[in-house]
């Protein structure tokens, strides 16, 4: 088993939390893992990415070789396209469709969305809206985690437990909201893949 994933978004959108949950689940599944994160300068509202690699064999490089990424998971639509050169010809593009506009020259969103939809293997969902409907806008990243989960080859319960583990100190209510967010993303992906 080998999965190379790029997590993308804008500083502060919570991609490191997605990485932490998948990471915990993978380690508990006895897999090898490497995850290169971005800290520092680019976190101030700039573009951020994380390379997450899971494998049943020992992993050499912390960075995914270009053109071999299995999944791009993005919490922001334009950011999902920034890493296309990294995506394998049979990889999946999984993205939130709600733009995060903090630059004056953000491109026409319709152009961005049609570029995503032109991609043969894609899942595009409004994670923000789904999270809002569940009562927690801030769980949009967990909706995205749910949406990419069918492609991870990781058992559902490993992921659910990882969410519980990471959130255990924050109270049952928050755990429930996030597990619901996770399930909603998962359901969307199952119905649309």
């Amino acid at each position: 088993m080998k999965k190379d994933i790029i997590l993308a978004g804008v500083g502060g959108q919570g991609i490191l939390s997605i990485a932490a949950i998948i990471g915990t689940a993978a380690i508990n599944a006895g897999l090898f893992l490497k995850q290169a994160e971005v800290h520092g300068m680019s976190q101030r509202g700039g573009d951020v990415q994380s390379h997450l690699r899971l494998s049943s064999e020992e992993i050499a490089s912390d960075l995914i070789p270009g053109g071999l990424t299995d999944l791009i998971v993005s919490v922001e639509p334009m950011e999902s396209l920034r890493y296309l050169p990294m995506l394998s010809p049979d990889g999946w593009l999984i993205t939130n469709t709600e733009p995060f506009v903090n630059i004056p020259n953000y491109p026409d969103i319709n152009k961005v969305i049609s570029e995503i939809e032109a991609f043969p293997r894609h899942i595009a969902l409004n994670a923000e809206q789904i999270a809002k409907d569940l009562g927690s806008v801030r769980s949009a990243n967990i909706v995205m985690l749910g949406a990419c989960s069918p492609f991870l080859d990781l058992d559902y319960y490993l992921l659910e437990n990882a969410i519980r583990n990471i959130l255990q100190n924050k109270g049952e209510e928050l755990v429930k909201i996030n597990i619901d967010a996770f399930k909603a993303g998962l359901k969307f992906a199952e119905e649309n893949k």
């Binding site: 804008v10 500083g11 300068m41 680019s42 976190q43 101030r44 509202g45 700039g46 573009d47 334009m78 950011e79 396209l81 920034r82 296309l84 050169p85 903090n102 630059i103 020259n105 953000y106 491109p107 026409d108 152009k111 961005v112 570029e115």
Partner: peptide, 10 residues
């Protein structure tokens, strides 16, 4: 990368 993708500096 599609040419319309804009840079997003911090």
């Amino acid at each position: 990368i599609p040419e319309f993708i804009a840079g997003r500096p911090p």
